[in-house]
């Protein structure tokens, strides 16, 4: 559906280069990366709102690189919603219709359908300034969808919402995606959010795509330290591999299979590390004794940092387990993980 080939954008302080992406029809594609990576600029380039230095953007086989934004059929929803302050909610939503050849019946029908499905009927005559963040967001979505765009671009739609509204909006997004069958490209800096919503995605960092593919693949098989860090692989170590073992300094970690000798990285998700106050009868190959350096509350669970020699591991523990095992800073503890939980790259 969307095909981006060798795109190069230079604008202000941003320099995006060698951007290659493929987004399939009806996909929910996640564009991820830290703040300032150039995600929004890339969205704007796809919408035709910023000039492109070289490369091509194709939608459904058609080269749109030089097409003005109004001829692309691509809607964009910004993080700050960008509602027109001088128009009512209904007129905001209706805005794009006048530029299309659509019959009046059809227009009214689309408007009412969107007002209903986004629960906005009671707000139709209000001014956008009087709406809450969640309401403004729904208006922005309706305004973007009413023209039935080929592609819908979402710029961090959840980041400006209260956490309680986020879950609700996530559901709504999924629902809308299924209803409209639009191809959605969404920008986010939150990997958990991306994982919950997207099918496929790409991680962008300092102007280039680090990795793209299915979400599970990005999550489980990061190909660089940047991606590993970004997807929340907290235990990331530079290692020397020999045979079936990886050495982090003087610590021997069993990989369970040989992978070719040499330098590399291993990563273990913190939720894959099990803590215990005593030795366990377990099939887990890797077992180390260490001392708890720090316990950090993360709300529903705790992040426990354990030092094994000079190497620091991070494990996630529920509050209940933490209390039961009486884990505290300075305590000795055993940590275990399966060799299959180790990701090497």
């Amino acid at each position: 559906m969307i095909k981006i080939e060798n795109l190069h954008i230079q604008l202000g302080g941003f320099d995006l280069h060698d951007i290659n992406l493929h987004v399939a029809e009806n996909d929910f594609f996640m564009l991820m990366g830290p703040s300032g990576a150039g995600k929004t600029i890339l969205l704007e380039a796809i919408a035709g709102l910023v000039p492109v230095k070289s490369g091509r953007i194709k939608v459904a086989g058609q080269d749109i690189t030089r097409l003005p934004p109004e001829k692309r059929g691509i809607s964009i929803v910004y993080q700050d919603y960008a509602l027109f302050p001088h128009l009512t909610v209904a007129n905001n939503i209706r805005y794009g219709l006048r530029f299309q050849k659509i019959e009046k019946n059809e227009r009214d029908q689309r408007l009412h359908q969107l007002l209903a499905s986004l629960n906005l009927q009671h707000l139709a005559n209000r001014s956008p300034e009087t709406l809450s963040g969640g309401e403004q967001q729904r208006v922005a979505m309706a305004r973007a969808l009413i023209v039935k765009p080929r592609v819908l671009l979402l710029d961090e739609p959840l980041s400006a919402l209260d956490p309680s509204l986020r879950e609700e909006f996530r559901l709504l997004l999924k629902q809308l995606q299924q209803q409209t069958m639009a191809t959605i490209l969404m920008v986010t800096h939150d990997f958990a959010e991306a994982l919950a919503l997207g099918h496929r995605g790409a991680i962008i960092n300092s102007g280039k795509i680090e990795q793209s593919g299915r979400m599970e693949e990005l999550f489980q098989r990061p190909q660089s330290t940047m991606v590993a860090n970004f997807v929340g692989m907290k235990n990331l170590f530079a290692v020397t591999i020999s045979g079936e073992d990886a050495w982090v300094e003087n610590l021997q970690i069993q990989l369970g299979h040989s992978r070719g000798d040499g330098q590399g990285f291993i990563a273990i998700r913190p939720e894959d590390i099990v803590l215990s106050t005593g030795q366990l009868q377990s099939s887990m190959r890797n077992c180390f004794q260490g001392r708890i350096k720090q316990v950090i509350s993360q709300g529903f669970y705790y992040e426990v940092h354990v030092n094994v020699d000079t190497i620091s591991f991070c494990a996630l523990v529920t509050k209940g387990a933490l209390l039961e095992m009486e884990l505290g800073e300075g305590e000795d503890v055993y940590l275990f993980f399966k060799s299959t939980a180790i990701h090497t790259f």
């Binding site: 964009i76 910004y78 530029f99």
Partner: peptide, 24 residues
């Protein structure tokens, strides 16, 4: 961004100026 949204919804630069920029 208001002008960007307007254009992505199908308005030309002229329409955008007279419907969005000028009224504001």
């Amino acid at each position: 961004r208001l002008e960007n949204v307007s254009r992505s919804l199908g308005a030309s630069m002229f329409s955008t100026f007279f419907r969005i920029t000028f009224p504001l």
